[in-house]
Amino acid sequence: MKIFYELGRYWIFLAGMFTRPENFSIYRKQVMLEMDAIGINSVGIVSLVSIFMGAVITLQTAYNLINPLVPLWAVGLVVRDSIIIEFSPTIIMLVLAGKVGSSIASEIGTMRVTEQIDALEIMGINSTSYLVIPKMLAAIFITPFIVLISMFVGIAGGWVVGELTGVVPSLDYITGLQSEFLPFNVFFAMVKTVVFAFIITTVSSYHGYYTSGGALEVGKSSTRAVVFSSILILIFDYILTQLILI
């Protein structure tokens, strides 16, 4: 029953956010700051995760493809498509759900328990749109770039490890990368990324916004934000894959 209550309240939260939002000029600076916080500050961790992800996928694919009928360059192709379609958008956005989601929820939760949100409301400002829209726009704009970086770094990681271990020589790997490339897959990944960015920012803001109590509750909201964002990302990953690819 609780889940329906939460869903209903989330829906009302979103509706309130889009009714009479503040003037866009006020948001511009906020959006820039948020892009920095959400995007630029995540490049390091995203690159790190992507390198290892690419390396592991390459080794595992090579290990599973020991078959005289399958050419070695197929590894490059499989690695590329796994990274582009699934690993970069989903895994990286799950990482961001942890990093960005918890920070959004604790920021907004702290504002709630210290009455900063009340202070906004008193001034007649729509606090949900003022707080959430810049984060949402920034995330929707910047995460596709983050995911593109992750794709490049991941594929490069696979290439390096294939060459270093001698499991997949460069030439084969690169031949694989160039075979049967479908630009649509990148587009599909971007669609997923944008949907996940919306989920992370709005769900985390929602959990922060409805915090009540003190510091302890802010911590709990932050945990809930990560759990719910992650679960929703996985559910929407499945839904979008079924809708678009099949």
């Binding site: 702290t110 504002m111 210290t114 009455e115 900063q116 009340d118 202070a119 008193i122």
Partner: peptide, 11 residues
């Protein structure tokens, strides 16, 4: 204008 208990300044 309102003055909140914990001041509620924007951090």
């Amino acid at each position: 204008g309102m003055l909140f208990q914990g001041s509620a300044l924007f951090d």
